[in-house]
Amino acid sequence: MVTITELPTRPRDVRPRRRIGMRQRLGRWDVKVSPYLYISPFFVLFAITGLFPLLYTAVVSLHKWNLLTGEGPFVGLKNYVDVLHQPFFWKALRNTFSIFALSTIPQIIIALVIAAVLNANLRARTFWRMGVLVPYVVAPVAVAMIFGQIFSDQSGMMNAILSKVGISPVGWHSNVLASHLAIANMVNYRWTGYNTLVILAAMQAIPNLIFVIITSTIGGLQIFDEPTMFDQQNSATTAGGADGQFVTVTMYLYQLGWGSQNNLGRSAAVAWLLFLVILAISLVNYWFTNRIASDSGAVRRARKVRS
C-alpha cells in the first residue's frame, strides 16, 4: 500500500514550444537554470555544514591527531586498524545493533498498527493524532530524566512495581539485555508517535514507507543521547556502564576524541567506519524496498494510469 519508492518517473517536458524572441530566450534560460537554482540551497548548505566536516574528518582519521595539540604525522590506515583491534569497539557495535533492533523493529510495527487504527474514520480525529505525537515534543533530556527515575535499580518505579507482583528487581544498569531494553524503551517512547504520523501520511498521500525505515535506521545507529543520559554515574566521556553494557558506537567515538585520551584520529576513524556501515545498510534498504516496489503489480498499474 505504501511502497512506491522509486525515483520519480521522468517528468514531461513542460517547456512551452514554438515561440522565439528575447523574452523567449530569457524564458528558456529560466527553464534551464531554475531546477538547479531550486535545489541549490540544499547543496550549498550541505557543502558548508556536511561535506566539509566529512572531508575534514577523513583527513583527521589518517593522521595521529590529538584534540588539544592538533595534527601529528600521517599514519595511513593505522587508526582504523587500531580501532578494529579494540574489543571495546566491537562491544559498542554489538550494543548499537542490539539497541537498534530492540527499538526500531517494535517501533515500526507498533507505528503501523496505530497508524492503521488512526486511518479509520474516527471521531475527534485531530485529538487522537495530536495525542500520539505528545512524546515527540518532550525533549530527550526530559525523557531521560523521567526514564532515569523509572528505571533506577533500587528506588525506581519499575522495580517497585515488579516487586509488588513478586518479581525480583531487575538490574537495569548492570544486565546487558535489561539496559538495552530500558534504553530502547526511551527511544520507542519518543519516536513511535512520530513514525506513526509519518506512516499515516504515507497511507494517505506520501507513498513512502522507506522514509520511516531509512530515517529510523540512521537515527537508531547514531544513538547517543539516551544511553549517555541513562548512565547517571559517569560523565559523557566515560558513560556506558561499568562493563560497557550499553556503550554505543557514537558514544565510543565521543569518548575517544573528547575523553582523557583526546585521540581525535581514532575518533574520526570510528566516525568513518560508522558512516560506511550506515551507508551500506541504507543502500541495501533502498535497493530492497525498490525491488519490492517494482515487483508489485498493483503499483505498476497505478503508475500506468497516472503517466
Binding site: 535499580d153 528506588s155 554515574q233
Partner: peptide, 10 residues
C-alpha cells in the same frame, strides 16, 4: 553508585 538517582535519594 555515586551520582545515581538511587544514591542521591539514599
Amino acid at each position: 553508585a555515586q551520582w545515581t538517582d538511587d544514591w542521591t535519594k539514599a
